[in-house]
Design a protein around this nucleic acid. Sequence first.
DNA 1: CGGCCATCGTTGCACATACAACTATCAACA
DNA 2: TGTTGATAGTTGTATGTGCAACGATGGCCG
Lengths: 141, 141
Amino acid sequence: MGEIESRCLGTRTRLLERAIANIFARHLKPTGLRDTQVTLLTAIGAHDGIRPSELSSALLIEKSTVSRTVDKMIEHGWVEALSVPDGRSYEARLTNAGRAKLVEVYPAWSAAQTEVEDLLSNNQHDQLRSIARHITRAVAS
Amino acid sequence: MGEIESRCLGTRTRLLERAIANIFARHLKPTGLRDTQVTLLTAIGAHDGIRPSELSSALLIEKSTVSRTVDKMIEHGWVEALSVPDGRSYEARLTNAGRAKLVEVYPAWSAAQTEVEDLLSNNQHDQLRSIARHITRAVAS
DNA sequence: CGGCCATCGTTGCACATACAACTATCAACA
DNA sequence: TGTTGATAGTTGTATGTGCAACGATGGCCG
């Protein structure tokens, strides 16, 4: 049973995630945005016209969570939903207000990112990105 | 702004955590235990007499979450609380039922662990453990 | 001894999230 | 064209979690 204690990757990943999420949460608090909101806002900004289902599968965020979070961002006026031929779906796009919000959030994000990078040793952030990329590919296939 | 999209360690860590947590959740479901419960049960088993505050700081789980989760495990009869000189705290210890529960859970945990290791490439699980150890030390100091 | 601050665990409350059921729409095909 | 099955997003429900406030205890120092 000591094997769980000594090797469990679930526990370790969670520990890692909490440590890093806490840092981001602290820095983002004054902006009023949550980490998930920043993630979705950024993803929409980087992939104009992306659809909720793509956000969900690419970021591994539950589709219901995406639905509710994007709804709120639409209410805030940061995102707009463009209708598409497929009547079940829509395309998400940043509004000017959404882009402005991202600009506003950037310094806090950057400070958090720097703090996390300082917390990790030199190669570890690259390893982390590499692992995440690996997972992304595995999920995509 | 593309920098957030391309480099954010918060997003990447969360993605990683979700991917792995989903695998563990799926395997653990039949046992009726959540990942956090397994983590706490295992930690108590490995560190007999550990206190809630120590569980919280070592595992980066909120003290309130530890409190409620341990309460439930006590109700299930898996953990017992031993009183200590310091009247504010107590020592947590596994009961025989708790040890039996761990034995019962082990196969599911092991299957999940194997699936995660298969998902990652050769060195990545070691890198992940290394990073988690690094974080643990940073937090402890 | 007595007051003050720190620490510990618990509880109240708000919220994000997961999972499942549901609705609406599309695609395939007879 | 009508039916069937798959897919997209939404909503209901339950729960885990975080944060803040609280009550209780301990430790410290005058």
